[in-house]
Design a protein around this nucleic acid. Structure first.
Lengths: 103, 103
DNA sequence: TTTATTGTTTTATAATAATCGAACTTCAAG
DNA sequence: CTTGAAGTTCGATTATTATAAAACAATAAA
């Protein structure tokens, strides 16, 4: 896909708030069942992730939107819209790049 | 040792220059033979790493010193002095924390 | 078609971070 | 003891980032 830039990735994860956001998105993406959680998860990603994140953090919507953009720009997540709601999917290639970092 | 803080670690690696420095230090630390390289390597770490880094990068000594401090503060490296020269060792626990990031 | 919901973009501000030069400290060598 | 080499610390400047409020856009619901 896009070429993976470790500096961008580390920069995206170097803010406490963004690391929190990413961890939440990652966990929500791990959830496979729609039943065991209030998350609507599918292979398309996690629905309503933006609203959920806003509920969990004490930050303004504009700031959170900005952080989502940074994570997206670093290639860590991909976000789309379904209706009014945003659907977010973790980019496992980027995660793998972190895991592979230094052998 | 010190407790590992991923935000600090990612922050330390989120600058292009510091990531370059860390990669160099990491490679030099991988070198086991004193013969095949101009690095003086031992189980104590890599000697003259500061001078070497200064030779490789177009940054002032004070800036590079600052970057070393950041890497050290994040727990990624440990530096000591032997004579006038600095000896640097990678902290593999921190590296492992990166590898383990997200399972 | 009006209104509410869900986000995004723009603009501004305050806080952090990167960088350098100069002064300083330590240690080694002459 | 003086000189030089190797780093560090301090002070200042510039650049980047985090943040929010307000205005905006797109969609769904009434």
């Amino acid at each position: 896909m896009e070429n993976i830039d470790l500096v961008k990735i580390f920069k995206a994860l170097s803010s406490e708030q963004r690391l929190n956001i990413f961890k939440m998105l990652y966990e929500w993406n791990q959830t496979t069942s729609e039943v065991t959680t209030d998350c609507l998860c599918s292979e398309e990603g996690v629905e309503k992730c933006f609203t959920k994140t806003c509920d969990c953090l004490d930050l303004s919507k504009s700031t959170i939107s900005h952080h989502f953009k940074e994570l997206e720009n670093a290639g860590l997540i991909n976000c789309t819209r379904i209706g009014q709601s945003s659907v977010c999917k973790i980019n496992m290639e980027a995660v793998q790049a972190i895991r592979d970092f230094l052998k």
